[in-house]
Design a protein around this nucleic acid. Structure first.
Lengths: 107, 107
DNA sequence: CCGAATCCGTGGCGATACTG
DNA sequence: CAGTATCGCCACGGATTCGG
């Protein structure tokens, strides 16, 4: 799964174990459903470990595996690139649109 | 567009200018439509330049910009990771499935 | 050789409501 | 608190057809 939320979960969980609700709060716009689904897929791929503390109230923590930590490092190169070229791409897009689709520019 | 074919186009075009039909042949399973669409999006984002040679028969070449070359380099970290952990993930998946969904294992 | 236009199926994802 | 279950939209992308 290259799912929409996977990367943000990796980022949020990279520093250390994090609880379900903490994830939900730190990731803007994610629904409980998608958070669960994405976590299950990450767990399935051996990227996160799920630890249930049998307490009241329930407490579940998610933690990245070593493999996922490596993935996170590799991803940083990508995000760095994205950050560096954010403006360039936005300008290229604007220029392309004014040249090829003048009607839609202000829409 | 984080489209399905963008990365493969980057890889195919990284060595140098490449023609439309060459792309179509070197990328397994891509349709003419999706190739065109993806190329347009990459062009729009300033990642490829499209050069039309007014000859008969027509000849169109696509070439990566410097920004796209940087992206390609950054991507390599990811693909390297994927290659290194291919087996690990496959095994994690198989283990997860046999444990959580025994019915589907052979389906 | 290179591409645009149209039709249409699939599934990822969101909204909502219900549980232990 | 940490999920699960059900419903439905719509954008991505495949197949096909029509040009320059």
């Amino acid at each position: 799964m290259a799912g929409k939320w996977s990367v943000q979960i990796l980022v949020a969980a990279a520093p250390g174990p994090i609880r379900f609700t903490e994830l939900e709060r730190s990731i803007e716009g994610v629904s409980r459903r998608m958070l669960t689904l994405t976590l299950r897929n990450l767990e399935r791929d051996g990227l996160v470990v799920r630890t249930v503390h049998p307490t009241v109230p329930p407490k579940v923590e998610y933690e990245l595996t070593d493999v996922a930590q490596e993935l996170y490092s590799s991803l940083r190169h990508l995000t760095d690139w994205a950050e560096r070229n954010r403006v360039y791409i936005a300008e290229a897009r604007a220029a392309y649109d004014t040249e090829h689709r003048p009607e839609l520019v202000d829409a």
